[in-house]
Design a protein around this nucleic acid. Structure first.
Lengths: 200, 200
DNA sequence: TATTTTATTAATCATTCGATTAAATATTTT
DNA sequence: AAAATATTTAATCGAATGATTAATAAAATA
């Protein structure tokens, strides 16, 4: 049979995925209703199950996308062979701030879903070796710091990611949305500077 | 008798609150079932509504407790009149790490519930003036830094709070629970040191 | 064109869930 | 002790929700 998915199929499937991304990300798995997703995508409720079998299966696809997006922005940089430690730090801060400025709710979505159902999603982010044995960690160890290299990694991620995790609260303190974004833009250069200070 | 653990002399009301704290914090509002809370506290389901009117009302009490705990650990320090900027930085890092080592899921719980229903809880954390007009911010401004004082506040909170927000992922990288706690303990002294470096 | 497969819809099923009710039991007040 | 009030339970209600079904429309295939 012609197993090539037709344009219309793809379109419907993609409309559902698009709506699922939005609704799941806004409300979280438990509060999201399949009817919300159906309405948001302008399709019949039964079509959601026709194409994706269940709410759970649909969510797994969205979650996988999100996790890959979140970790795909850092893992490759950690493992670059040719770049220096300083270049990696600049790369991580820069690419993460660009990514999260566009998708501010990415980290809180992933982290809160993992917390709500750790048995289901913990394995998804088990990138232990790809981090602990990365070129980045090796380069950190070479510097013979007086503290664990994990501190540096935590600081880099904390200073970069935390403002977006705490955005619902922080943006109230800071004021306008534009000011928040301007601060984040500044941090692309500031964070590498601060981290480098910690390496001495 | 159900799996209620400590059936101590707690009043029925307090038994329900205790179970509500646990279930809401573990699963979030939307995924928490009033029947879970009833079973966890070893009481009849109807008693929950008898004492607290509704799931929503019960949750509001738990949420208020959590928010006060989370922000109560920092707001008073920000507004101390007698302590120096350096002392405040040490106080915040120290008291927050102590608090979050005991209650690691506090920040992710509060932040994700705010994100899921911002219209309901955003007002709860609107401490704008208490932060922006705090003694801490005044002291930062006096230092005539080359960057916005918000950067320093974000860095302090990011380095302190982020490891706990990301704990479900980070603890896998780091290894045993004890090692994570040991790193956090070290950070009580390290974070103030790093932040002070940023003040020059 | 005729037939088979794929896509879509309206209706509805089965469960779950928050909440209520009415009756029973315990506690306090008079 | 009697009456009044407060607490607790079992049963159940109604709405919401994920999922399915049976019928129809559209597209693909032969």
């Amino acid at each position: 049979m012609a197993k090539g998915k037709k344009d219309l199929d793809l379109s419907t499937e993609e409309k559902i995925m698009e709506a699922a991304r939005k609704v799941f990300t806004e409300k979280g798995y438990a509060a999201a209703r399949t009817r919300d997703i159906a309405e948001e995508s302008g399709i019949n409720l039964a079509l959601l199950n026709y194409y994706f079998r269940s709410k759970e299966k649909l969510f797994e696809l969205v979650m996988l996308e999100r996790v890959n997006k979140l970790f795909g922005a850092i893992i490759p940089i950690l493992n670059e062979e040719s770049s220096s430690l300083e270049e990696k730090i600049e790369g991580i801060a820069g690419s993460y701030i660009d990514l999260l400025t566009e998708h501010p709710d990415l980290p809180i979505f992933v982290l809160s879903e993992i917390r709500n159902r750790p048995e289901k999603f913990a394995a998804l982010v088990n990138a232990r070796d790809r981090v602990t044995k990365s070129v980045f960690m090796k380069q950190l160890i070479e510097r013979k710091l007086s503290v664990s290299p994990f501190h540096i990694l935590i600081n880099l991620l904390g200073m970069t990611v935390f403002p977006f995790v705490g955005k619902p609260v922080l943006s109230k303190l800071i004021g306008k949305e534009a000011e928040f974004d301007e601060l984040m833009k500044q941090r692309k250069e500031l964070i590498p500077m601060w981290i480098k200070m910690m390496l001495n």
